[in-house]
């Protein structure tokens, strides 16, 4: 008799645990407003990334097309992947001194792992992380970018 009782209670307990699980899924089924997924390309306008989100390395320019990069090359050294190349040029200042300035700050987004070491180590805060995240392109060469704009100069008062 006891065996039968145990058998029956096992069956009922088993069914009870199954109903518990079904209560959880049923709870969410009948509450469609709790849906967490988003319709991504449609909500693109509303998407706001966190301000510290590491999307890609950029070099901000002011309205006079000036940046803060001195071409010191620390970002190039600190990059673990070799995704930054600094090409410098030498200009003759009016007072006759030679000065090394940045010619091209080449950034290979395809090789970058967004570790933030270059931004952190930059002595003049010339590069920052942008919040863009749609990086897909048709051609790999488009991932190689020149960060300083053509014709841009270094801002006044940035120390070497």
């Amino acid at each position: 008799m006891r065996a039968i009782w145990k058998y029956l209670s096992d069956v009922l307990k088993g069914i009870w645990t199954l109903i518990q699980g079904m209560r959880v899924t049923g709870h969410y089924f009948f509450r469609p407003w709790l849906i967490v997924t988003q319709q991504y390309p449609e909500n693109r306008r509303k998407l706001v990334m966190f301000e510290r989100f590491r999307g890609e390395v950029t070099m901000p320019h002011n309205e006079n097309n000036e940046h803060k990069c001195t071409g010191c090359g620390i970002c190039e050294i600190s990059c673990p992947n070799g995704s930054i190349e600094i090409i410098t040029a030498t200009v003759l200042l009016p007072d006759g001194k030679k000065k090394r300035i940045i010619d091209k700050h080449i950034y290979h987004l395809g090789m970058c792992s967004l570790c933030n070491l270059c931004v952190k180590n930059c002595p003049s805060d010339a590069i920052v992380m942008a919040q863009t995240f749609e990086h897909a392109v048709w051609d790999r060469t488009q991932l190689t970018k020149v960060l300083n704009r053509p014709g841009s100069k270094i801002m006044e008062g940035i120390k070497e």
């Binding site: 307990k13 088993g14 518990q20 699980g21």
Partner: peptide, 12 residues
């Protein structure tokens, strides 16, 4: 607790 309800307690 929902995790327990859904999976841990489940007889299967």
């Amino acid at each position: 607790p929902e995790y327990d309800q859904l999976l841990t307690g489940n007889v299967i």
